[in-house]
């Protein structure tokens, strides 16, 4: 079972939920797919036993074959390849590695070459749990390749949690694609609700099942509950904001190690999402 944790708005508790659910389960693998700013590893303090470079490909133009027809430049949505007067310019840092320019080139003048764009780290946590995270190199435009790699090497895991990037961009879509269930970490503020609506739209478009955990539920207003009811969306749990929780998180520690209240909530979420046998 693959469960993605996502949010829309940042700072609503994706990582808090992910690492505390991870710690509440006996047999589970977690990937931190927020490769632009991974942070789950700060809480899990695992032991890195392996790391790998992840490459993207970008186009190289053979100017003996190129007729400067301009088709590659017309195709590219990111202005990464621009046919000029006597040669074709390639801005490899703008390239999203879609493969399109090679497909549209009528003279086969385009091939691809590799460029390292980041790394993935394999960690063991405790005796039998695995955690993987990716890190995109600063300046690179897209972490999708790294996220796809993380998901590919964990595709056979029985229970997989995916700490997803915020927002509704390509990275988020890559992280949640193929999930059996998604948990939205929401907060009851106007921004929280507004961004959550976009995530709901995305999940419905992707035809993925989902439920909501309202974090910091004693703050803000109750518009989010009205919205969930109107839309018929499952409310999995509420988690209060408490100053002591903020302190625990700021120290890089797990809420479940300190709070029975949070332990019970995590178990309740696990029962609802994974079933009794996992709790």
């Amino acid at each position: 079972m693959k469960i993605a944790i996502l949010s829309g708005k940042g700072g609503t508790g994706k990582t808090t939920l992910s690492v505390n659910l991870f710690s509440s389960l006996n047999k589970v693998t977690l990937i931190d797919a927020d490769v632009e700013e991974p942070n789950s590893h700060l809480f899990l303090k695992g032991n890195t036993y392996h790391e790998e470079d992840i490459n993207k490909q970008y186009p190289v133009v053979d100017h003996d074959l190129c007729t400067l027809c301009g088709k590659c430049g017309e195709f590219c949505n990111f202005n990464a390849i621009i046919p000029a007067k006597k040669k074709v310019l390639v801005f490899d840092d703008l390239c999203h590695d879609c493969g399109g320019c090679k497909l549209v080139c009528p003279t086969n003048a385009i091939s691809y070459t590799d460029k390292a764009i980041g790394k993935i780290f394999y960690q063991s946590v405790g005796d039998n749990k695995q955690f993987l995270y990716g890190r995109l190199t600063v300046g690179e435009v897209s972490g999708v390749r790294i996220i796809e790699y993380l998901k590919n090497v964990t595709k056979k895991e029985e229970v997989l949690l995916i700490d997803s990037p915020p927002g509704t961009s390509c990275s988020t879509v890559a992280a949640i694609e193929g999930s059996d269930y998604c948990i939205i970490a929401a907060e009851p503020t106007p921004f929280g609700l507004s961004d959550m609506r976009m995530v709901v739209e995305l999940l419905r478009e992707q035809k993925l099942d989902f439920g909501v955990v309202v974090n910091k539920s004693n703050l803000g207003n109750d518009d989010i509950y009205k919205y969930l009811e109107e839309e018929g969306i499952e409310l999995l749990e509420n988690i209060d904001f408490r100053e002591e929780f903020a302190k625990i998180i700021a120290r890089g520690e797990l809420l479940v190690d300190h709070s029975e209240y949070v332990r019970n909530i995590m178990n309740s979420i696990i029962k609802k999402v994974l079933g009794e046998t996992y709790a």
Partner: peptide, 18 residues
Amino acid sequence: TAKDEGSGAGGKAVKVLG
């Protein structure tokens, strides 16, 4: 026509001028 590009507007604007 390059002014609203999400990325790479510099190169595209030069293409427009070219």
